[in-house]
């Protein structure tokens, strides 16, 4: 069984970087797939990878991560991008969504700018599209 947990932006915005990353990793290590409102900023994303690497052992193999940023697609009109940047300035990186899950559960995430395909492993270790 796959467990998805939605984490709203408001739950993360007041936390320090260390607490934000700890929260994400704790959920992922409970074998949950985190659907986070908004996107991780730099260097939070690189630091999340760094933290995940430091915790790899025989049970925890790391993470799979992908984000969707609907305002910055390849074919997004110029004014939509400007509008998106303006909204981000006002409310932070709230637009879009980030998916983070354990590498043992998510086998692969395929994405283009506006679409994500998540391949989870079934009980037999085979890939299944979600």
């Amino acid at each position: 069984m796959i467990t998805l947990q939605f984490v709203p932006y408001t739950e993360m915005e007041g936390l320090s970087q260390a607490k934000r990353l700890r929260k994400i990793l704790s959920l992922v290590k409970e074998e949950k797939i985190v659907l986070m409102e908004g996107r991780l900023k730099s260097p939070d994303d690189a630091d999340l990878i760094k933290e995940a690497m430091q915790e790899i052992d025989e049970k925890f193999k790391g993470i799979e991560i992908a984000e969707v940023n609907p305002e910055h697609g390849e074919n997004t009109p110029f004014f939509a991008k400007v509008k998106g940047n303006f909204v981000n300035m006002l409310i932070g990186d709230r637009a879009g969504m980030t998916i983070i899950g354990p590498a043992t559960v998510i086998k692969e995430i395929k994405k283009d700018p506006n679409k994500i395909q998540l391949f989870a492993s079934d009980a037999n270790g085979k890939k299944k599209r979600r």
């Binding site: 900023k41 730099s42 994303d45 690189a46 992908a66 984000e67 395929k110 994405k111 283009d112 700018p113």
Partner: peptide, 18 residues
């Protein structure tokens, strides 16, 4: 291979931010 991986985006985003 597919360039739209989060690792690629993270590397480039962090270089831009720095």
């Amino acid at each position: 291979i597919d360039p739209f991986s989060q690792v690629n985006i993270t590397i480039i985003g962090n270089l831009q931010a720095r």
